[in-house]
Design a binder for these strands. Structure first.
Length: 379
RNA sequence: GGAGGGAUGGGUGAGUGGUUAAAACCGCCAGACUGUAAAUCUGGUCGCUUAGCGUACACAGGUUCGAAUCCUGUUCCCUCCA
């Protein structure tokens, strides 16, 4: 397995900062990767995404195979050329859709059959097909193994069966991936919130020899505390020399606390989705720009963020855009949020390098205490 | 001048005797959003001392055990004909 050079330049407690070097460019870690599911980071130009400081973005196997079709993207020159993003790209395998589209798919030991949410047509995803789509057709720099994102909560028995399936699919993904010079493949640890199962899964995935290790099955309703506990129970079983990626996370507080536990990479739809919905993340916490109190607020969203959307537009104006249903509102907040998440990661890197990460962490954790996600009510 | 139609909660607009404090949508006020079926979804939106009470369907009367709904008058609006 080709592993991209991962150079850790500084460590502060369990937090570490460094660079993951890919043929398409370096990824500064800890890194936040904006999500571009359908070959677009929603509501943003690729130029804007790049200017926010993002080194790498995501694409999605399931969505792209349905539309415009993986073969078509390949015919058009691959996902980078097609979308206009020339930096590194990571693609998700479709494993998250196994969970999020549970009602539209059927699983067997060999793979998953999806009924398209667009037109009802049937699509088959196996570990090998997912690799073919990601690495061969889309041309992802980092591919993810096909996995089953385990539902939460679930029984020990269910979690064990699920992680074993993912382990098996991981091996088959590796076999299909083979040897490649300029691309790599990450494995995914599952096991819900059971220490023995996370250990079992982690040891299995690490033993298989991937180019990076992801933690899956998080941010699916377990809440902030459970998520941190799960990361804690998994980290001891991961090697230091590989990048660690927590999939689908998270809120700023989640990022800070995960970095403190040794995580190097993240992705999350939150900055763009909540931006489209009127939520702006700031150093003082999230605000809902649609709230009446911003109707005549002439201050910018967050002057401290080096982004035109953050600095050059009044809250009153963006409030108006949202109330009026104007496209520019969601565009500006998606832009701001994406820039804010990058600014947060940059700040984190700087503090790790300076050995002052714990100061930053305690400061932000106190400030963002109230934003921690609660565990989903089982009722 | 004549004939007809209509006035319902912030707006549009259902409702033609009791199950109507009054559908639905919009607006307004909040909340949620974590590997994107999400420019989405959820809750609230007459007042009060809130298992109840008081007001309320242009206005004023009337019929009825009971009226937004039926009758009479008034005011205003719309269409058509002269």
């Amino acid at each position: 397995m080709t592993t991209f050079p991962f150079k850790i330049s500084a460590q502060d407690g369990k937090a570490r900062t460094g660079t993951l070097e890919t043929p398409r460019g370096d990824i500064r870690t800890p890194a936040f990767m904006p999500v571009g599911t359908a070959a677009t980071v929603k509501a943003l130009y690729m130029d804007q995404v790049e200017q926010t400081g993002a080194d790498i973005i995501l694409g999605n196997t399931y969505h792209l195979m349905l539309r415009p079709g993986a073969e078509r993207v390949h015919k058009l020159g691959g996902l980078h050329k097609f979308s206009g993003w020339s930096g590194p790209m990571l693609t998700d395998s479709g494993g998250f859709q196994v969970w999020s589209l549970a009602q539209l798919r059927k699983m067997d030991s060999d793979g998953v059959t999806f009924r398209s949410h667009i037109d009802g047509s049937t699509h088959r995803l196996t570990p090998a097909r997912s690799i073919e789509i990601q690495a061969d057709l889309l041309g992802a720099d980092i591919s993810m193994q096909l996995d089953e994102c385990t539902d939460f909560p679930c029984t020990h028995e269910q979690a064990e069966a699920s992680l074993k399936l993912s382990l098996d699919w991981g091996q088959r993904s590796l076999d299909a991936f083979g040897d490649r010079d300029a691309q790599t493949l990450f494995g995914i640890v599952q096991g819900s919130n059971f220490p023995d199962l996370r250990e079992q899964s982690a040891k299995g995935v690490v033993g298989q020899g991937f180019g990076g290790i992801a933690l899956g099955g998080l941010a699916v309703g377990e809440g902030h505390e459970q998520m941190c506990a799960t990361i804690d129970m998994t980290m001891p079983h991961l090697p230091d020399h590989l990048p660690r990626y927590v999939m689908g996370v998270g809120k700023p507080i989640d990022l800070v606390e995960s970095v403190a536990r040794g995580v190097d990479m993240f992705d999350c739809v939150l900055p763009t989705r909540s931006g489209r919905h009127g939520q702006a993340w700031t150093w003082d916490g999230p605000i809902n720009i649609k709230n009446a109190k911003f109707a005549e607020d002439t201050s910018p969203i967050d002057e401290a963020i080096n982004c035109p959307a953050s600095q050059n537009y009044s809250r009153a104006y963006i409030h108006h855009l949202f109330k009026a249903g104007e496209y520019l509102g969601p565009m500006l907040l998606s832009w701001h949020n994406t820039a804010f998440f990058q600014a947060l990661m940059a700040e984190i890197r700087t503090h790790i390098a300076a050995g002052s990460f714990e100061d930053l962490r305690s400061q932000l954790s106190a400030r963002w205490e109230g934003t921690k996600s609660k565990a989903r009510d089982p009722a």
